[in-house]
């Protein structure tokens, strides 16, 4: 009962850039404040979902220009991309995901 009454913390959409080329697709996602341990990435054919848990706010009265909350976003992926060969790296709060093209579909992405 209490769990139903407890408001869940807000989640926010992280900003992302999407690139496309003969070597496939590249996704750059900004996740400031998310540690490597706080990042969850799920890639299935046609879908990429990410969750980023941020540290809680420091103590004290606050003037905030940006909201504090976790990140969550789902990207729909082209069926031309090989999700089984996806590679990801995370540095300085920016996640980079590379998705190579499937077999003979590279020319379709160029």
């Amino acid at each position: 009962m209490n769990a139903c009454l407890t408001p869940s913390p807000k989640t926010y959409l992280p900003k992302a850039d999407q690139w496309l080329g003969p070597e496939g697709a590249r996704l750059l996602v900004e996740l400031p404040g998310v540690s490597r341990a706080g990042l969850t990435l799920e890639i299935t054919p046609g879908r990429l979902a990410l969750t980023g848990r941020v540290r809680r706010r420091p103590p004290g009265g606050a003037q905030e220009e940006y909201p504090i909350g976790d990140f969550y976003r789902v990207f729909t992926l082209s069926p031309l991309l090989n999700t089984a060969q996806a590679q990801a790296q995370f540095e300085d709060g920016v996640l980079e995901v590379r998705l190579p093209p499937k077999g003979d579909t590279a020319s379709c992405l160029a």
Binding site: P32, G33, R57, P58, P59, G61, A62, E65, G93, V94
Partner: peptide, 21 residues
């Protein structure tokens, strides 16, 4: 974007700078 937190004589300022070395 910057957040400012004040507790007594202490200030904590946080800023989102993803991708900045």
């Amino acid at each position: 974007l910057v957040n400012l937190y004040q507790e007594g004589d202490q200030l904590t300022l946080t800023a989102e700078i993803p991708g900045v070395k």
